[in-house]
């Protein structure tokens, strides 16, 4: 009883494949946006002068960098729903979980980017009369952005990889589609192969993009 390879089932379904891929991408992008915003806030807190302000940020980073996404996802989606009756739509839970965990990693990147700005920049800015707000807006943050851009792009690749499991809680993403199609058509090899190929292509494209960002923003320091 051999396995009959049938690639037509895949090509016939290319539109659904596309739609599912876009869903995965959609989840990843929203997670990134959330993670960047939260990560920046946490990084600024981490850099605060008072240890009291630093503490919650440090705890957050420590906890969320130790938590596997799968565990947190299930905990948030099912746990909260059954125990407290708080229902989040699957996509929302996915974005939240991915975002919270990624923000912890990103905040470390942002923090080192912030610290990498030379002290002299602050002095030069002050010496020409800039206020603190102007200093950050026009001098410090532009430099931080250029420094952390490659790492952020790399983090996005990590988010994409994490986003592959959101199908488990029911988000109709690439892998969910592959799984259900495989079950329906009894052609798992074809569907998983194509899904895998699509996924790798996307990842490698973004990884290459991150690499280009890295070479473009290499500062030759003073």
């Amino acid at each position: 009883m051999g396995y009959k390879f049938d690639w037509k089932v895949v090509t016939d379904n290319w539109q659904n494949f596309l739609h599912a891929t876009l869903t995965t991408f959609y989840v990843a992008v929203w997670s990134l946006l959330f993670a960047v915003a939260l990560g920046l806030a946490v990084a600024l807190l981490r850099n605060a002068k008072s240890p009291l302000v630093q503490a919650p940020a440090r705890i957050y980073v420590g906890v969320f960098r130790s938590l596997p996404l799968y565990v947190f996802l299930l905990w948030m989606y099912y746990g909260f729903k059954i125990a407290f009756g708080l229902g989040l739509p699957a996509i929302g839970a996915a974005v939240l979980a991915l975002g919270l965990i990624s923000a912890a990693y990103l905040s470390e990147t942002f923090r080192s980017g912030l610290l990498a700005v030379d002290r002299g920049q602050y002095e030069a800015g002050a010496a020409i009369g800039l206020t603190t707000a102007q200093l950050y807006r026009k001098v410090v943050l532009p430099q931080v952005v250029r420094t952390v851009l490659p790492a952020t792009a790399n983090q996005f690749v990590g988010i994409l990889k994490g986003a592959t499991i959101v199908g488990i809680i029911g988000v109709v993403d690439l892998m969910y589609f592959a799984r259900t199609s495989a079950a329906l058509t009894f052609k798992p090899f074809e569907f998983y192969s194509v899904a895998g190929a699509i996924f790798i292509t996307i990842t490698l494209v973004f990884a290459a993009f991150a690499g280009r960002l890295e070479s473009r923003y290499r500062w030759r320091r003073n």
């Binding site: 030379d118 002299g120 920049q121 002095e123 030069a124 800015g125 010496a127 020409i128 009369g129 800039l130 102007q134 026009k138 001098v139 532009p142 430099q143 250029r146 500062w219 320091r221 003073n222």
Partner: peptide
């Protein structure tokens, strides 16, 4: 005005923009 030992020019701005920043903002 102050000139520093290690220049402290703003690396992400052109020389022109380095000079106009103070004028425009302050």
């Amino acid at each position: 005005g102050m000139v520093f030992q290690h220049f402290n020019l703003f690396p992400h701005l052109t020389t022109l923009q380095n000079c106009t920043l103070g004028l425009e903002q302050s």
